[in-house]
């Protein structure tokens, strides 16, 4: 294989690997922009993954077209993610609990629940979801060196990858170009003022926490149904991606347009695990497995060190509960 083809393969793999994190981080941006921090992404991704696996097996067994089944799976995973996020919303917004502890509880609970469901409902431990998403080849005929490979890396991908490109734009447009987006930013920056002009702070925060959960659910489902996955459920499969997504949100300064590049950067770190072995660059699997976590920590350090004193772009009222009567 020549260098250009390796470049294409590594980049394509990075885009595919980055997609679950990208969805999850986009959702967290929406949630955090509304002033609520949800550290439970890991748990919500697990719920999305187990939902995708179980519903995927059930739906493809009915004999419906694979693509239809997969679209339904994505919808189910989004619903499951938003339902589990509702727990966090209720505990933080209605019962006014500490958001960090509630997020941890969600991470532990979501993981435990998905493990349990997996154990109870998967009778055959070696079951594999064979009918998954397939790649659409939009850039096959382009033979310009480098440009062709670059385009193929981004445009020979499955439905979820394209959906992720679209969602980056949609989320950015929503947050910065619509009235509701303006309200969203207002309740995250200054809920008192938003309340004064008639925005229902509590209800909005409920909705945005649930939307964040839906994104994380889809992010988790991507690890099951994407063309590049093996289509198998396993305990430990999310492997910290939920936490990496939180780091990514900080790195991207809560900006959807930056988060996409961050996601693919982490995608490269993850793709290296398999690619470095295939191409014979490096073969110690344990060191390769460490890389994404070390990269995340380093990126986080650099983000904090080089941001101007205290201003990392965090919404002003992040994780501060809002109570009308206590103002």
């Amino acid at each position: 294989m020549n260098g250009l083809n390796i470049f294409q393969d590594l980049l394509a793999s990075a885009v595919a690997m980055g997609t679950p994190i990208l969805f999850t981080a986009l959702g967290e941006i929406i949630t955090e922009k509304s002033g609520v921090q949800n550290l439970g992404l890991e748990g919500m991704m697990y719920i999305g993954a187990i939902t995708a696996f179980l519903s995927g097996l059930a739906l493809t067994a009915t004999g419906m077209p694979a693509l239809t089944a997969m679209i339904l799976v994505i919808i189910f995973a989004a619903l499951a993610g938003s339902l589990i996020a509702l727990l966090h919303a209720y505990v933080c917004l209605s019962l006014r609990a500490n958001q960090i502890v509630s997020g941890l509880a969600l991470a532990i609970f979501g993981t435990g629940l998905s493990y349990y469901l997996g154990k109870v409902f998967i009778t055959d431990a070696t079951a594999i979801l064979n009918d998954r998403l397939t790649r659409f080849h939009f850039a096959d005929g382009i033979d310009i060196p480098f440009v062709g490979q670059l385009l193929r890396a981004f445009l020979n991908q499955d439905l979820l990858v394209y959906l992720a490109y679209i969602m980056v734009f949609v989320v950015w447009f929503f947050i910065y170009k619509t009235q509701r987006g303006l309200n969203l930013r207002a309740i995250g920056e200054n809920p008192g003022a938003a309340d004064a002009v008639g925005v229902n702070v509590k209800l909005s925060r409920y909705i945005y926490v649930m939307i964040g959960g839906a994104f994380a659910g889809v992010g988790g489902s991507a690890l099951i149904i994407s063309a590049s996955s093996v289509g198998q459920w396993g305990q430990g499969m999310i492997a910290g991606r939920g936490w990496i997504a939180i780091a990514l949100v900080i790195f991207a300064r809560w900006n959807p347009k930056l988060v996409i590049w961050g996601a693919y950067l982490f995608g490269i770190a993850m793709a290296l695990e398999s690619r470095a072995q295939i191409y014979g660059w490096f073969d110690n699997i344990f060191i390769l497995k460490m890389i994404p976590y070390i990269v995340t920590i380093l990126v986080l350090l650099v983000t904090f060190i080089f941001s101007k004193q205290k201003d990392i772009g965090e919404p002003e009222s992040l994780s501060k509960p809002y109570d009308r009567e206590e103002r």
Partner: peptide, 22 residues
């Protein structure tokens, strides 16, 4: 019995405790 129930129980304990703190 699936051992995973013990893990789930831990997570739900934390949830109910912070909810109960209300």
């Amino acid at each position: 019995i699936p051992s995973e129930i013990a893990k789930l129980l831990q997570g739900s304990i934390l949830f109910f405790v912070i909810a109960g703190d209300f």
